[in-house]
Design a binder for these strands. Structure first.
Lengths: 205, 205
DNA sequence: TTTGAAAACTTAACACTGTTAAGTATATTT
DNA sequence: AAATATACTTAACAGTGTTAAGTTTTCAAA
């Protein structure tokens, strides 16, 4: 029994080895440059070995994605200290924008690429880390409505609007579309201004 | 002079042939399945011939993108009939959502993929069709502020917020992220609800 | 301790991808 | 008719994800 456990542990270690190499690669060289062969070379294994540990490349990317969510969620721990739900929602938005701008490669994988979602479907698994973040968003909107700080509507409607906006801003920025609206040097500031504007505007008069 | 003009016309015809084949291909089979070889096969030319008419694949995609903008702008003609700028902005948003959901392949190319923007940089050209749409957005926001229908702020801030939101919704929907927030059957309705909510909320009390 | 099976890993290959250099027809001009 | 442009193709390079088959290593039972 002890040896089968050790085997399992070794297997997990190689899995981690693959994932770490993959993540380093796409942080260093960008998502599009990550190939199975390059990952394999980094860890001194044959390319086909990776297929003994993961179904396909999408599955590898999916797990990188998961680690991106961990990174993101770790930023949000201090949030529970904020009492005012609107203020908390605001800070969530700020964190979201910052995460996206500081980790474009991760953001790409987590919210833009379809590869991780394909893996998710193939694996029959759930978007656990993503769902967790969305639950937190719905919660804070719900709380704001209950405390009378927001006009009461369907929680999903407002949650979708807020997520939509911050995602929209980050993804337009990452994909070089936002500098068509404002000069590059004003971009980050204007993104934050837009978020501020939304929260000020939606706050019940 | 007459024959050199005819030659030029023939050249343009083949360019169009290539572009039309490309567009059909990615509407039929999806963006990711479009390859130079497949386009070439459709028009019964050798793959390398395409490189006599376009610098590279990105440039082909860029021109498909342009035709997507034409498609989109043609939807917006009836808009000038709407007098109330807020109502007009609202309808612009509705059109945007509909275009995205009805033409996901075009939308992908126009606002998500980086290939067309790379071509734009390589060509040293401007994002003419995109700029036109953004100008219309800024105009309507400006008008609403001047008529006292919106709280006066920097036009870009509000324009970015609105564009961000509709783009966010469409791109999350296209990339299968939005069904993590609401069930698939409610998605389209909730997207429109979110847009309605934003416009109602931002309207000056 | 040797045998035999199971596990871990690699080699070779397939069918693709974008792209370029060199070669071949086909018009057009001299 | 010969020379020159123009239009197009063939062959190849270097890369991609992935699979089938073969090899080496590990490890338990005889």
């Amino acid at each position: 029994m002890g040896i089968v456990a050790r085997k399992e542990k070794q297997k997990q270690e190689i899995r981690s080895l693959i994932l770490e190499a993959s993540m380093k690669l796409f942080v260093e060289e960008g998502f599009s440059k990550v190939s199975v062969r390059k990952i394999a070379e980094r860890i001194q294994y044959s390319p086909t070995t990776l297929y003994l540990y993961f179904k396909d490349k999408n599955e590898i990317l999916f797990h990188c994605c998961e680690s991106g969510f961990e990174k993101m969620l770790s930023q949000n721990i201090a949030l529970t200290l904020i009492n005012d739900p609107i203020e908390r929602l605001h800070q969530m938005g700020v964190n979201y924008l910052n995460f996206g701008l500081e980790n474009p490669e991760y953001y790409d994988l987590m919210f833009i690429q379809e590869a991780p979602m394909s893996a998710l479907i193939d694996m029959g698994a759930g978007w656990s880390s993503g769902d967790q973040a969305l639950e937190a968003l719905k919660m804070v909107v719900h709380e704001a409505m209950q405390k009378g700080l927001l006009v009461s509507t369907k929680v999903e409607t407002v949650a979708m609007a807020v997520w939509g906006m911050v995602h929209g801003l980050v993804s337009l920025a990452i994909r070089q579309r936002l500098d068509k609206l404002v000069p590059a040097e004003d971009m980050e500031q204007t993104m934050h201004d837009s978020l501020d504007w939304l929260l000020k505007t939606m706050k019940k008069a």
